[in-house]
Measured scan of single mutants.
Amino acid sequence: NQASVVANTLIPINTALTLVMMRSEVVTPVGIPAEDIPRLVSMTVNRAVPLGTTLMPDMVKGYA
């Protein structure tokens, strides 16, 4: 099973992502692959992402 990116904290809308905000976890449904974490750093989220939420491609500006 592939690990996905999961919010390690509440990420407010329009926040630039940092490494400490994200962790990898095997979850269903599958979200952004964990190997993309380095690429996500400094990208911003377009909605509030609660703790434990899987990051989906449409949640990160410029990812999809």
Score class of each variant (00 low, 15 high):
A34S: 14
V30P: 11
L19W: 10
L51H: 14
A34N: 07
A64T: 14
Q2T: 12
D36R: 10
P29T: 04
L17N: 01
I13D: 13
M43E: 05
V60A: 01
P50C: 07
S4I: 02
L10R: 08
I13A: 11
M21W: 03
M56L: 13
P38I: 09
A64F: 04
E35R: 05
T18Y: 03
S4D: 01
N46L: 12
V45Q: 01
V26E: 15
A7G: 03
Y63C: 05
A16Y: 13
A3V: 08
M59S: 04
V45K: 00
L10I: 15
L17Y: 00
V41W: 03
P50V: 07
V49H: 02
V60C: 02
V5M: 02
R23T: 11
V5F: 02
A3L: 10
I11W: 01
D36G: 05
N8S: 14
A48T: 15
K61P: 09
M21G: 03
V60K: 01
P33Y: 15
I13W: 06
L19K: 11
S24G: 09
G52M: 06
A48Y: 12
V20Y: 14
R39N: 05
D36V: 07
P57E: 09
V20S: 10
T44R: 08
E25W: 04
M22D: 02
A7L: 03
I37D: 00
G31V: 01
A16W: 06
S42V: 03
Q2V: 13
M21R: 03
L17T: 00
G52L: 04
V20D: 14
V27I: 14
I37K: 14
R47T: 15
I37E: 01
R39W: 08
V5K: 02
G52V: 02
V27K: 11
P57S: 10
V26C: 06
R23N: 06
R23M: 07
N46A: 10
G31Y: 02
N14C: 14
V49F: 03
E25S: 10
R23F: 04
Y63E: 03
L10V: 13
T28R: 03
T9P: 02
Y63F: 11
N1T: 15
N46Y: 06
A34G: 12
G31S: 02
L51G: 13
A7C: 04
E35V: 12
L40F: 00
R39A: 09
L10M: 14
N46I: 11
I32W: 02
G52F: 06
D36F: 08
S4Y: 03
P12E: 09
T9C: 04
T15V: 11
G31N: 01
L10E: 10
R47E: 09
V60S: 01
D58R: 06
V27S: 04
V20E: 15
P38F: 12
V6R: 04
V5E: 00
E25I: 04
V20H: 13
I37A: 08
M22G: 01
L10Q: 12
A48I: 12
N8L: 06
L17R: 00
S24H: 12
V6I: 13
S42Q: 11
T28W: 04
L51M: 14
I11C: 02
V30L: 09
A7E: 00
T44N: 06
V45G: 01
T9L: 11
N8V: 10
I32G: 00
L40R: 00
M59T: 07
L55P: 00
V20G: 15
P29E: 07
I11N: 02
T54K: 04
R47W: 09
P12D: 12
L55M: 13
G31F: 03
A3D: 14
I11P: 02
E35L: 09
A3G: 06
D36T: 05
A7P: 02
T18H: 07
V20T: 13
T15F: 08
A16I: 11
A64N: 15
M56C: 08
V45E: 01
M43I: 04
A64P: 09
K61N: 14
